[in-house]
Design a protein around this nucleic acid. Structure first.
Lengths: 242, 242
DNA sequence: TACCTTGCCTTTGTATACATAAGGTGCCCC
DNA sequence: GGGGCACCTTATGTATACAAAGGCAAGGTA
């Protein structure tokens, strides 16, 4: 990870700080001071400020009154609401795709991704990394099918939060077996969404996408209901306020 | 306008540049150079960079590859999609308010705002500034009723764009009379939304809020269909790519 | 003539010194 | 003893000088 050396100090600082926030090393509410960070990272205040500004843009930091920055804190309800929001936005993307009519080549590509996911199921055990990558590709493609830059931007902004990404929790190894059982259902929803879009059934496409996101929500909720030790293997939830 | 002097150079630069973008003085796609802006504004590059970063955060600038900034260009479709998006988000806020149950005092306040708008209609002519202020208050309150910080943030971010605000186009004096005719319908929708929320009718609340936003969309579309000279008195549309 | 290479020029990246504002603390006066 | 004022500390705000990277143009060569 430390070998992902970017070109500039500001980019390296951005990556480092983002990671510290996402993995919970920097707890929600923590005020970030330029001088302290600069010393810690071994650079000057200027690139630190640049990195902080970008983290604020990513909604990982809040600007405090008086010009400073503080780590945004995410409560359980915020996580749930953010996933709900992803469902709403992806639902809108699906509806717009249906209403505006998706080009045949985009429909074809969506179906090709679905086919590739199907192939993963033929093996004895599922390669989670491949599934995760294909699932992410499917969702990105769905967003594109809306033919709306405005919607696409919004979705990209939301799924930048690790717990809101369509492939969040797939790297959770604690409930792997239970999770795999749900993948078949998810794939069925993928298929139905594209079918609805192809048939110009906007309302159906929208509610399918919303329901699809609910799986992630159920996942979070079951993880949080479980014993605390189950949560520790779930990197997407490290950011949660304790 | 120039007397809205903020405390710091960066804040003044932010205000000045924001205005230049919104009123179309800085056309979409224009690349913004730190040195040139600094000279123009009579300050150094440092506060200029700070202002540019914040404008990127507001989605008025895009970051270009290589570190620069360019004015975001808004096509007609982007404006329409953004209004649609506001409808979707306000719809979600209304649905969540209904599903989660709005506290009685929030319902009471919403009804009080509606009453105040009613009073405006009793006069011979409508005070558009008062209407606009109350309408904005109603929408902000609706957003709050969702009891979701995540949703509220999103809505605030969207309505920061002048053409997406619930009270956009109310200051358009070209079609004033036609506009006033629609205000009664809008007010009826306000009432129905709160009624739906109070009755825990989530789907009804959601679709009412969506339809409510459609009025703004119709407004934009009729303005754009009209002769170009009609558009010139509409500040909210100055940002539109020509 | 077309392409590649080199060098300049433009623009952003970085460090740093100094300015300024705000908040906390301690002392003094009432 | 309490309150207010002033100082000091700590933070961000600003200017500026220099570094480095990327793009463009011009010139040379194949």
């Amino acid at each position: 990870m430390r070998d992902t050396k970017a070109a500039t100090h500001a980019q390296r600082a951005l990556i480092t700080l983002r990671q510290r926030i996402l993995n919970g090393q920097l707890a929600g509410g923590t005020r970030l001071f330029e001088v302290a960070l600069a010393e810690d990272l071994g650079i000057s205040r200027t690139p630190v400020r640049a990195a902080l500004a970008r983290l604020a843009e990513e909604a990982l930091l809040d600007r405090t009154t008086g010009g400073g920055f503080a780590v945004r804190s995410f409560a359980v309800r915020d996580v749930v609401d953010t996933i709900e929001l992803r469902g709403v936005l992806e639902g809108t993307a699906a509806r717009l795709a249906a209403e505006r009519g998706a080009p045949v080549d985009m429909l074809a590509e969506a179906r090709e991704i679905i086919r590739q996911i199907d192939r993963l199921f033929t093996a004895d055990s599922i390669d989670m990394d491949s599934y995760s990558a294909l699932n992410t590709r499917f969702h990105a493609h769905l967003s594109r099918m809306s033919q709306s830059d405005v919607i696409q931007r919004q979705i990209e902004r939301i799924i930048a939060l690790p717990f809101a990404s369509p492939s969040a929790f797939l790297d959770d190894h604690s409930q792997q077996l239970a999770l795999i059982k749900t993948l078949g259902a998810a794939q069925e929803q993928h298929r139905a969404m594209i079918d609805a879009i192809a048939n110009r059934e906007g309302a159906r496409a929208e509610s399918l996408a919303r329901e699809h996101a609910r799986a992630a929500r159920r996942n979070v909720e079951s993880l949080l209901d479980a014993e605390a030790n189950l949560r520790e293997g779930v990197p997407s939830l490290a950011i949660l306020a304790s």
